[in-house]
Nucleic acid binder design. Structure first.
Lengths: 349, 349
DNA sequence: TTGAAAGCGCTAACAG
DNA sequence: CTGTTAGCGCTTTCAA
């Protein structure tokens, strides 16, 4: 027998008063008799009355649910961002519904529609790897549902975003390589419709220029980020007559693969080749040697995305914003030739 | 200007018919004129009408939302279970709202109440480490909300659960240690109100008995799983006059800490000491040497928990069930003394 | 074959 | 100070 939830009606008939009086008493309406208010509240307490969010939602046309779409749930990068989003939103009394696009455009479109049907009050998204259309997001905007992108973004003119300064970080790593003796610096880059990929490549070029190294086409290889394609890209580099003496990966994953490939050769890291990646996955400090990487402030990315959504919900006409968060370059053994092993951080800058 | 969502009313007035006729046409009610039905559907298509879930929910008293409470979001174990839950539930047209208890009882209670207030249609939970009360879950049952526990469970008489056979796995590892020459097998155990902790300890004892090794109290040390307490437990073992020559950890994390501690000594793994853990975290294959561990079928745990919830929602009086999933013992270098490095699996049994 | 009306739980404008 | 009423979007009797 389902224990029916207590409603205003129940309490009204118990107390022999009208529903609206109960409703008002519960929200301390000044018109209501103090004594009555007290009595109503006591009963509500006793019966542990909870307003039905469905009824409220129907009335106000809002669900207090925020949708979140991430490329996957299982990597540390995304799960810790979600954790940040959750911290911020639950404090504000919102719930989050998480969907995974599994790095696929089709899934992403499906998720957007599902969430729109659920009547979410806002949507936070990190694009899938092969997300190269924007129609589904335009639809979100059409419905006037607040939207925020983080990390991998698009429609930057219209949508608020939370990102990091990929250009500077890629440049910094490149010059760091140079300072550690590297002269043939390579970059493994990814699908170019992704803003983060483009930016990192740009930073790489900038870094080369800064230290006076010429850009050589052969040292820039592409991967679509599939394991096979990544493997090919790595081999292309390793089999070059003049092998690179440093490799900057578009993310940590390709660098882990690179390390594995290098173990099969006579090359030593960092003696013969320097390595660094992006996003500071958890493993960065467990592989041998420890991997130099750009640490994203994941928790903060999540919190900021959540704050932007909240702003847009609350303010009638919130303007588009772009938040650029600082990253930390964690320099570890994989990229340091002069120093002994050890990890230190250049701090957040 | 908010683009209002299309409602039955809108379509009714457009077509000059009543709301109820539209409603019926949309669900192919046999009474409605075929031609009219077609016209209504065409308009619905054109205007991309979506039923308002809030209205439906209010009517049927259900939200199609399932709550999920996990101790944390950022470890692979939980995020991949969530991924499994999501796969199953979204297919069935349910949404999931995820909350993190952060391993704290207080947070867990808060999450339960929040979700109950949201009027979830079901709740899937893995207990927090220090969750040693059950009142909040009794409340869930009182409200007749379907409930399923996975991995760390309680109230087993009344609630359906998805678990693995911890006893056998701990026993298998213990005998495996013995077969690899260990004679002083230690176990680092955790908070004993957790079923999984108790079961693993039980399996350890069983294994000892099976190979004819006496149980020695000094080889069983406790940790509350905080880093500090874990560190103490490890030191207690390593500083024993007769140091253990094998350690079974209650999970992988304590074993990672152990490896780190051992690196500061003259001990070699696996030459002097064998190690194995539970739950096969991602890092197990990146640490040196690779860690032997019990791999939980995380995705399957998630799917099964979701299926149980679905069953309980659909069937009026579903009975309590306990699903025991098979695990795989991944034997790797950390526990093998005779063999060369390499990973193979004993398969699922 | 279709429409009118009630009701899910709640709020707010409008009356007393 | 309190009650009545309408309405959020939808389904479902009951009438026509």
């Amino acid at each position: 027998m389902k224990k029916k939830r207590v409603t205003l009606k129940d309490m009204a008939s118990e107390l022999g008063i009208s529903i609206s009086t109960v409703s008002r008493a519960l929200k301390d309406h000044p018109d209501i008799d103090k004594g009555l208010t007290k009595k109503v509240k006591a009963l509500a307490q006793k019966w542990s009355y909870i307003p039905n969010p469905l009824a409220m939602g129907l009335l106000r046309q809002q669900t207090r649910v925020i949708g979140v779409i991430v490329p996957d749930l299982v990597t540390y990068f995304f799960s810790s961002i979600i954790s940040g989003i959750e911290d911020e939103l639950q404090q504000a009394g919102y719930y989050i519904v998480i969907s995974s696009s599994k790095e696929s455009l089709e899934k992403e479109i499906e998720c957007v529609h599902n969430l729109l049907n659920l009547r979410i009050d806002g949507l936070i998204v990190c694009l899938a790897q092969n997300s190269n259309q924007t129609d589904h997001f335009k639809k979100v905007l059409d419905h006037d549902v607040p939207l925020v992108f983080f990390d991998r973004v698009c429609l930057e003119k219209e949508v608020s975003t939370v990102v990091v300064d990929n250009v500077s970080m890629a440049r910094d790593i490149t010059t760091h390589f140079f300072e550690n003796g590297a002269r043939r610096i390579a970059h493994i880059t990814g699908p170019k419709h992704l803003n983060i990929v483009e930016e990192r490549a740009e930073g790489y070029l900038k870094g080369l220029k800064e230290v006076g190294l010429p850009f050589e086409k052969k040292y820039l290889v592409h991967t679509d980020l599939s394991p096979l394609s990544t493997e090919k890209a790595i081999q292309k580099l390793l089999q070059l007559p003049h092998r690179p003496d440093a490799i900057l990966g578009v993310n940590d994953t390709v660098i882990f693969a690179t390390m594995k490939a290098i173990k099969g050769t006579d090359l030593k890291i960092p003696h013969d080749i320097l390595l660094a990646g992006f996003s500071d996955e958890f493993h960065a400090t467990v592989v041998e040697p420890n991997l130099t990487s750009v640490a994203h402030p994941t928790h903060e990315i999540g919190r900021n995305a959540a704050k932007l959504i909240l702003e847009q919900i609350e303010e009638e006409k919130a303007i588009q914003k772009k938040i650029v968060l600082n990253t930390a370059l964690h320099i570890r053994a994989s990229s340091v030739r002069m120093k002994k092993e050890g990890t230190w951080s250049l701090g957040f800058f």
